[in-house]
Amino acid sequence: MASITFIDQDGGKRTVEAEPGSTVMEAAIRNDVPGIEAECGGACSCATCHVYVDEAWTEAVGGPEPMEEDMLDFAYDVRPTSRLSCQIKVTPALDGLVVTTPERQG
């Protein structure tokens, strides 16, 4: 298992356990993490699972693939550390990962 901490825009933290091989988005959905909607179910076609990877983790997580970069164009308040959580595979190396959910438009 790998632990992932989600931080919301108000500073609230929620740490969940994730199975290696799953995605950060799947861990968020299983644990009802606010701010992760995942409307497309992880197909990299909606950008509603957008997160900011903590700067300490950006190298370990890696950068987005071209298809993900295209979808990030539709996300709100994209930053250099933006990723779609459906595209981040959980591995033992990501144990302790910290991500922040963006403020929702609305």
Rank of each mutant, 00 (worst) to 15 (best):
G106W: 08
E37K: 09
D32V: 02
K89S: 12
I7A: 15
E37R: 08
H50E: 00
T81H: 04
E55A: 03
G35Q: 04
I88H: 05
A2K: 02
M71H: 08
P102L: 06
W57L: 07
Q9H: 15
G35M: 01
M1K: 07
E39P: 00
D70H: 06
M71E: 02
G63N: 04
V16C: 10
S82D: 02
M25E: 10
E55K: 03
Q105S: 13
M25Q: 09
A43N: 14
E39M: 05
D10F: 12
G63S: 12
T101Q: 04
S3V: 04
A18Q: 10
P20V: 00
E26F: 11
I88K: 05
T81K: 02
D8E: 03
T101C: 06
A43R: 14
L97S: 05
Q9I: 11
G96W: 06
T101D: 12
I29D: 10
A47T: 04
D32R: 13
E59Q: 14
G11R: 10
S85K: 11
A60H: 03
R79I: 02
D8S: 04
A47I: 00
Y52G: 05
I88Y: 07
V53R: 01
C40W: 13
D32G: 05
A47G: 01
D95Q: 09
P64D: 00
D8A: 01
C86W: 09
A27T: 08
Y76M: 14
C40D: 14
T5P: 10
D8I: 01
G63D: 15
T15L: 03
M71A: 03
A60M: 03
T5F: 10
M1H: 13
G21W: 12
T23C: 08
